[in-house]
Design a protein around this nucleic acid. Structure first.
Length: 571
RNA sequence: GGGCCUGUAGCUCAGUUGGUUAGAGCAGAGCGCUCAUAACGCUUUGGUCGUAGGUUCGAGUCCUACCGGGCCUACCA
């Protein structure tokens, strides 16, 4: 039995996430975690909300709430949605937790001890009307290059020229529109990750099996221009982790907080500590996942994230871990994803374009979304959601291939033999043949899951469902029943056992249906099959079962058209 | 501008270190079955693998150029 630590990129607190966000980290991480648990491994699956930064403060102001209250409320919303999608986190934490405050300050102190922190004096734009420093992109003005009037302080979206906020003509705050701006001097801490460049480079080089998307982004940042640049890790904000050197004050840094991307990955560790706290466990309980000197050296640590998060996970966070000089666990495998687009364009929060997590659950059960999203997860390139594809995929795979199989077998049995596994006859050649096919496919399925090749895994799982229909069609118990009821009984017995097997094998992707299948089969035995012949004899003759309700109702053309219209967006 | 990814049947995608007639699912067509959510099964029609060159006995696979799509480019997270 292995020990596997799994983290999903932590969703930003600022609003409800859309399906593109969901499929880019949390959902694939969940399928992987569920599979590994089902295989009997010890899993720690961690997620949290990412609560700091300027956008959170602004969203809170817009909602008319103090930021702490806003975040607390949004955490409840996001937690509810992750439960709704059946994301099986062992703990869903908060980056604003006391644990994260302490750990973030601890890491900063360690980095300072090791001469990896530098104080830099810089100039930044301050908005008097807003009473805050503004990040470059929150300053708007006319582009000096092309004359576009809504250029942002970091880059003009029209001509793509890189800008400095002071380049803008008629600069104004993107928050309030105020032009009462001034450039102020401020001091910030920088993480001297450039000193760790060679070590990071060698480390990345050693990861031959990582997705090319992961390593190519890391390489680009390591070697672009003068190489890896140092990075500011503090901000002039009110909401965040106060800058401290371990548990001591940091002279000159009063009133400042750590930058959200410094504390966010540390929350992976902190959330595990929060988990221990929530379960009344001691520090050793979480440290055995994170400290290689306290039991974590046999842990395999896998991270999931969208491609936009790759630099922080391949460089900044490892630099923090390495630079601490303490035996913290470094990531072993980084699975990164491309983007999911929506019907010919991007998902857009501002334009209300696409489907958001709360709306998705209002429309259809979680399993529908999970199945479609995971069988189309953007592993190799950006992929696209269309309602036609969603409808076709869900109706065919879930309703016809799997759902109808369960239906036809259980109903046939009920009408001919009653609601118990029938006795009589014996498994023969046909059963051996399909068992052999499933064994081969199961091995492939497991291999793809181990390698986190989720699309391939779903297609193999589907083929396992199809094998049941092929078997049943060839065996034709409805015909055999008339001449040889015992032979028909054996076929039905085998098919009922197939149903239970499907319930077990499908659980990483469609957990609710899995539960419903096992409940209908009236069994608690959800153990992953190691011996297929034994697994297909789990339900003995005489074992009672019930005919479940329709597992997956089909999406009608009319319903699809309604949804299509509803989510077309205003943009 | 620079870097990276991507372009394979109407649609969504597989195609290992280059090796014989390029595969799967869906959609389409035909047949079969009638237990089932008009579900299932079998058979079958679709591709000069973005374009043009090159390397090679041999290229979807390697190289070059071009065309199209996408992402990143460090103060949004």
């Amino acid at each position: 039995m292995a020990r596997i630590l799994i983290t999903s990129a932590i969703p930003y607190i600022n609003g409800i996430k859309h399906l593109g966000n969901l499929v880019g980290s949390q959902l694939p991480a969940d399928a992987y975690a569920r599979f590994m648990r089902a295989r009997g491994h010890e899993v720690m699956f961690i997620c949290a909300t990412d609560e700091h930064g300027t956008p959170a403060e602004l969203a809170a102001a817009k909602a008319g709430k103090p930021v702490a209250e806003f975040c607390a409320d949004m955490w409840v919303v996001q937690k509810g949605l992750s439960d709704g999608f059946r994301l099986s986190f062992d703990h869903f934490g908060r980056s604003s937790s006391d644990r994260n405050h302490k750990l973030t300050q601890y890491f900063a102190g360690k980095l300072a001890e090791n001469d990896l922190i530098e104080e830099v004096s810089e100039k930044q734009v301050y908005s008097n009307a807003d009473g805050r420093f503004l990040p470059d992109r929150y300053i708007e003005g006319t582009c000096p290059n092309c004359g576009y009037e809504h250029a942002r302080g970091d880059q003009c979206e029209n001509c793509t020229k890189q800008l400095d906020p002071t380049d803008l003509i008629n600069p104004r705050s993107a928050v309030s529109g105020s032009t009462d701006l001034e450039v102020r001097k401020t001091r910030h801490l920088y993480l001297r990750q450039s000193k760790l460049k060679d070590r990071l480079d060698q480390w990345i080089d050693s990861k031959k099996d990582w997705p090319i998307l992961t390593t190519s982004i890391a390489k680009k940042w390591l070697h672009d221009g003068d190489g890896l640049r140092d990075r500011g890790i503090t901000r002039d904000l009110d909401w965040g982790v106060p800058v401290m050197k371990g548990d001591k004050p940091w002279p000159g840094m009063e009133g400042k907080v750590f930058y959200v991307w410094f504390d966010a990955p540390i929350e992976y560790i902190a959330a595990t500590a929060e988990w221990a706290d929530a379960n009344g466990l001691d520090d050793a309980a979480w440290q055995r996942w994170w400290r290689t000197d306290k039991g974590a050296d046999d842990v395999r640590y896998v991270q999931f994230m969208g491609k936009d998060n790759v630099p922080f996970h391949t460089l900044s966070f490892p630099a923090t871990i390495m630079g601490s000089g303490a035996p913290w666990k470094l990531v072993d495998y980084i699975k990164s994803f491309n983007y999911l687009n929506y019907d010919g364009g991007q998902f857009s929060t501002s334009q209300g374009r696409g489907v958001f997590m709360d709306q998705a659950l209002e429309i259809l059960p979680a399993d529908y979304w999970r199945w479609w999203l995971l069988s189309h997860v953007p592993e190799n390139s950006d992929s696209e959601f269309t309602w036609e594809n969603f409808q076709a995929s869900v109706n065919k795979d879930l309703a016809d291939v799997l759902g109808n199989f369960v239906s036809r077998v259980t109903k046939f049995c009920r009408s001919k033999f009653g609601e118990a596994v029938p006795e009589g006859g014996a498994y023969g050649k046909a059963e051996a043949t399909v068992t052999a096919e499933i064994a081969t496919r199961l091995e492939a399925y497991e291999g793809h899951m181990e390698a986190i090749e989720l699309r391939k895994a779903t297609s193999e799982l589907r083929a396992i469902w199809v094998a049941g229909n092929e078997y049943l069609q060839a065996a034709a118990p409805w015909a055999l029943f008339k001449t040889d009821p015992d032979a028909a009984a054996a076929i039905v017995r085998f098919a009922l056992n197939l149903i239970r097997l499907y319930g077990v094998l499908s659980s990483p992707f469609i957990p609710d249906a899995s539960t419903a299948i096992l409940a209908a089969m009236q069994t608690k035995d959800d153990s992953w099959p190691t011996d297929l012949d034994a697994a297909l004899n789990t339900l003995p003759a005489g074992h009672a079962f019930s005919v479940p309700d329709v597992l997956f109702a089909k999406i009608t053309d009319e319903a699809r058209e309604d949804m299509q219209a509803r989510f077309a967006g205003q943009g």
